[in-house]
Amino acid sequence: MNEQATRAGAETPMVEMRGVNKWYGDFHVLRDIDLTVRRGERIVICGPSGSGKSTLIRCINHLEEHQEGEIVVGGVPLTQDVKRIEQIRRSVGMVFQHFNLFPHLTVLENCCLSPMWVQKKSRREAEAQAMQYLERVQIAEQARKYPGQLSGGQQQRVAIARSLCMHPDVMLFDEPTSALDPEMIKEVLDVMIELAREGMTMLCVTHEMGFAKTVADRVIFMDQGQIIEENAPEPFFNAPQSERTRLFLSQILGH
């Protein structure tokens, strides 16, 4: 704990949110969010649907715009400036619930597109790197197929590889296993666990509590747009402090 504290003091945090508020029209989705994520930290965010957890991580790469407060990613403050938003997005990887692979491109092209067009790598270099990451998520043999020919689990692993090809400093996972058939959840979680072991900074919105117990440094529980409880996994699951957290945990773990 002490060691972590001194390290955090020595370097800038990966993500810092201070007093972030967001409204959809009149609906107050995020309320006074304060969250600091250190480099290499793995955070799991859970909470009932509509609690604002997806919105929170989507604010970090400005897929959603916050109206009040401050977000700093890797030392760069997030403003309206398009160049700066794109700079932040290049260093933040994101994996979506519905994969969002590009269906008109092959798996390999999905992984090469942004390295080639955004980072200006040569095709050869981008393809070599893409194959390396596809190898890592164990799907290299499908590189020439189109996303529509793959199963959900395979598509999600490709989506993770596609993000990794941009060498992100932090990865955001927005319910990566919620749209998968039960037998495919494990293959995606295995890739995420592997990624966590390698020291990637991760923010995961997920209901996979087994995953949270295995890899998370901190678990955050959100409800009605606010952070209700935040703790290391062991105390979080064994001795939740708030009544709402206890209720939520009993609902998702109780069956």
């Binding site: 997005r89 979506f96 969002n100």
Partner: peptide, 10 residues
């Protein structure tokens, strides 16, 4: 689709 492209920095 557009969000995924945006998230990749395009």
């Amino acid at each position: 689709q557009e969000e995924a492209a945006a998230a990749l920095g395009m």
